[in-house]
Amino acid sequence: MKIVFSLYVFFSCLSCFAQTDTSNLQFHQITEELQYGYSKPRFFDLFVNIPKNYVDLGKGIATKDGAKLLGITAALTAVLIPLDQDLVNHTQNISANVGLSRSHRYKKLIGGMDFPTNISSFYYHLGHGNTSMVYATGLLVTGLIKKDYRAIHTSVEIGESILTLGVMTQGLKRVFGRQTPNRAVVDGGKWQFFPNLKEYMVNTPNYDAFPSGHMATLTATFTVIARNYPEVKWIKPVGYTMMGLLGVEMMNSGVHWAGDYPLGILIGYAVGTVSSNRRITKVENKKFSYNKTKYTPELTVTSFLGQPMLGARVVF
């Protein structure tokens, strides 16, 4: 009996992946397996994408994760509002004991911009749109000098987020009409839904506490930066610390209640996320060594021209 030994090796493709055209992208290495790709920035996208942001925000609310975040925000707000007066009182008492002033002091710079001259005004300015634009300007200049698409996109996203937030937060303030702590005539501040627009403009602190635009602005700014630079680990801790300082300061100075923050944070996070997501192309580079291959030898018995043949193959 003639015995013929044969070895068959089979290669099979188990799945196919759609490939994104990445020929015109500038890449930044995030991890060993992940790169972020950025196309050449187009400045006017800052304005064109604002309507798209509102559409994406609406779609996000309809998702399971979006509904979950909205539910958590509503629950936190409902818990904090009854406690708001006590929280503000305790914050102001503790701040007074450590020497933190309740007043904001500034000097005027060239161009009319306010420059904080005490610690309270400095903390308050962390959530100011002008401060966010300083970050954006720094990133823009860096990006233009180094021809770094990521830095330019991040700068544009900050500006886009601030413009998007302006409409949202100002619109909501004019719906809820909550008094600030400084103007409160009842514990927790009076709610005057849909206040007269002229009265709102004349006596704004009587109506503009909820939600916090400053907290939304700071949250959006650091969400954009953190999502574009996830490999820089200190960004999130610094951002969270700044949000905490801002929150305490605004309660101490009587600008906001704690209950104003959850919705502001949610809005800022959502806007920063949708603004940055559309500009990032994620490319995964999985190494073969990460996919463990299992080899299974098999014996085969066949016949060829009436002659029995013993073979072997390896399946993997």
Rank of each mutant, 00 (worst) to 15 (best):
K52F: 11
S6E: 15
K236G: 01
S132F: 01
T221H: 03
F288A: 08
K233R: 15
Q85K: 09
I61F: 15
L14A: 08
T217Y: 03
D208E: 15
E157Y: 00
Y8V: 15
K236T: 15
T91Y: 04
M201F: 07
P181I: 04
A270S: 15
L140S: 00
T77F: 10
G254H: 03
V55I: 15
V315Y: 09
G143C: 00
K190M: 14
K59F: 12
G268R: 05
P41Q: 08
G254W: 03
A220T: 02
T204M: 13
S212P: 07
S161V: 05
I50C: 02
F304N: 14
A312I: 14
G127T: 07
T300D: 09
A136D: 01
N206W: 03
G99D: 11
S12K: 08
D21W: 14
G268H: 04
Y124K: 00
F176W: 13
E199N: 08
Y8L: 14
L139Y: 11
R178V: 11
E33Y: 05
N277H: 10
L197G: 02
E249M: 11
Y106M: 02
K68R: 13
T20E: 12
L305A: 12
Q170L: 04
R150I: 02
V9K: 02
V175G: 03
P195K: 06
L100K: 09
Y135P: 00
T154Q: 00
T180P: 02
P211E: 04
T77W: 10
D260Y: 07
F193K: 01
G60W: 12
S289I: 14
I3F: 12
N53V: 11
A18Q: 11
I235R: 05
R105P: 03
D208K: 07
